[in-house]
């Protein structure tokens, strides 16, 4: 199946923005759980599970055969009254962390999860150093060019100008 899809993709991929999986995604309503709360829970779990044979799509978004089967499995487990964690665990035992669209925080994914804070921190640090450096250099003796610029700066102080 995977390989078959790959062959199918071969023709499609040559578009740069080849879409995740060209799906004819009309689902079978009989898949859905009778209780809307259960169905909502199943959808929330499904949105966290990757359709294994597609690109970065969740099983809720894909009409690939395997995604449909996995949707059924999720709904069976929900109907049995299992918790979200239990269902997630059931899936991870079988398919590994690959099936989780948001990877668990481990030592190996620390960089990934830390990236937003890290990038922001590095950026702000660079900006801070730049500002501090500039304020340190300001009192140093200026060459004529810089003196001129400083004059302009003091003249332009406090004005709003595009």
């Amino acid at each position: 199946m995977t390989r078959f899809l790959r062959h199918l993709f071969l023709s499609l991929s040559l578009f740069l923005i080849a879409t995740p999986y060209i799906a004819l995604a009309v689902d079978d309503p009989s898949e859905m759980l009778p209780d809307p709360r259960d169905e909502a829970r199943a959808e929330a779990i499904g949105a966290q599970l990757r359709c294994l044979v597609c690109q970065n799509e969740s099983i809720e978004d894909s009409s690939a055969g395997l995604a449909r089967d996995l949707r059924k499995v999720v709904r069976e487990h929900v109907a049995k009254g299992e918790t979200n964690d239990q269902i997630m665990h059931w899936m991870v035992v079988r398919y590994g962390n690959f099936i989780r669209l948001s990877p668990p925080l481990t030592l190996a994914t620390a960089l990934l999860w830390g990236m937003p804070a890290l990038a922001l921190l590095i950026g702000l640090l660079c900006a801070f150093i730049m500002f501090r450096r500039r304020s340190v250099t300001a009192p140093l003796p200026l060459d004529p060019d810089e003196q001129k610029r400083l004059d302009e700066l003091s003249r332009g102080k406090g004005q709003t100008d595009a």
Partner: peptide, 14 residues
């Protein structure tokens, strides 16, 4: 036929 046992095995394709 249904591919359900395969899921229990962790099969994602053939």
């Amino acid at each position: 036929r249904e591919g359900r046992v395969a899921i229990d095995w962790g099969v994602s394709g053939v």
